[in-house]
């Protein structure tokens, strides 16, 4: 009896150690990735890196100014497309809990969220690149906006669902029309959740490369024309990383450092907003 209990306790201890060990091992790749990005990234980052355009191989110096601007343009473009639709759909789903259309739409959101980004690249290619006969910022924006949509819809729906029903009643009882109740009472009360969802969706697309490969493509020059190819940070990293030149590899690390900071920054701000701006009911 004694020995059996002891054996069980040993097994218990060994299992716990194993679980903790395996969990901690998962941190190793994270640390290594962050270490290499920081070490190799900071080495190439200087003022020129932010303000200069890429230079052909052989010429030293240059930077990734166009990629940073391109990423910002793509974010703005895809937000303009996805935010109104996303919030409207989110409101629709939170206001219609049952029914054929809402349930179908909910399923579609799930499927859309799981759709590989490369497939959305093909879609934007078919819808925009083929008719306009050119890779373009617009096609990249469309691909990315389809990626943002499910995140915005889901967070809007979840946030608005949690808003107490009695707020809606209070507004309606004052004779406020339904649409004004939604826009002026319910939406403001859920603004922090919606903003969080938006920022998370931006974080999701900022690092996306696959859907840009044959939509926004890439561009070593500055471009502000929506119908022409545009550069982006992740595309530049891919392009440099796959090149045979060590100078460009170094630039890839530098761009990665900036990209990671931007993406993690969005995530951090999103979290801060959901914690700080919480509306008290």
């Amino acid at each position: 009896m004694e020995r059996q209990v002891q054996f069980r306790l040993i097994k218990n201890g060994v299992f716990k150690i194993l679980v903790v060990l395996l969990a901690v091992i998962c941190l190793i790749p994270l640390l290594l990735i962050l270490y290499y990005i920081t070490k190799n990234g900071i080495a190439v980052i200087n003022w020129d890196f932010f303000t200069q355009l890429p230079r052909p191989i052989g010429e030293s110096g240059g930077g990734i100014f166009n990629s940073i601007i391109g990423t910002i343009i793509l974010i703005i473009l895809s937000s303009i497309i996805s935010v109104p639709f996303g919030i409207a759909t989110g409101i629709y789903l939170s206001e219609n809990k049952e029914g054929k259309l809402p349930n179908t739409a909910r399923l579609c959101v799930v499927v859309l969220q799981g759709t590989p980004s490369i497939v959305l690249g093909i879609i934007a290619y078919i819808w925009v690149v083929v008719p306009f006969k050119s890779f373009s910022a617009l096609s990249g924006g469309i691909a990315l906006s389809i990626m943002m949509l499910p995140v915005i819809i889901k967070t809007t729906e979840e946030t608005l669902k949690l808003i107490p029903y009695n707020l809606k009643e209070a507004s309606l009882a004052l004779g406020v029309p339904y649409y004004r109740t939604i826009l002026k009472v319910i939406l403001p009360a859920g603004i922090n959740g919606i903003l969080t969802g938006f920022l998370l969706s931006v974080a999701r697309i900022t690092g996306e490369t696959a859907p840009l490969l044959f939509t926004a493509f890439g561009n070593q020059f500055m471009n502000f024309n929506f119908l022409k190819p545009i550069d982006s940070l992740p595309y530049r990293i891919f392009f440099y990383a796959m090149s045979p030149y060590p100078e460009w590899h170094a630039f890839a690390w530098g761009a990665s450092f900036i990209l990671v900071i931007i993406v993690l920054g969005f995530n951090l701000i999103a979290r801060g907003i959901s914690a700080k701006w919480k509306v008290q009911f």
């Binding site: 990735i33 690092g207 490369t209 891919f238 990383a241 690390w253 990665s256 993406v263």
Partner: peptide
């Protein structure tokens, strides 16, 4: 962390 950085 973006996929392209895992790749790099």
């Amino acid at each position: 962390i973006p996929s392209v950085i895992y790749g790099l």
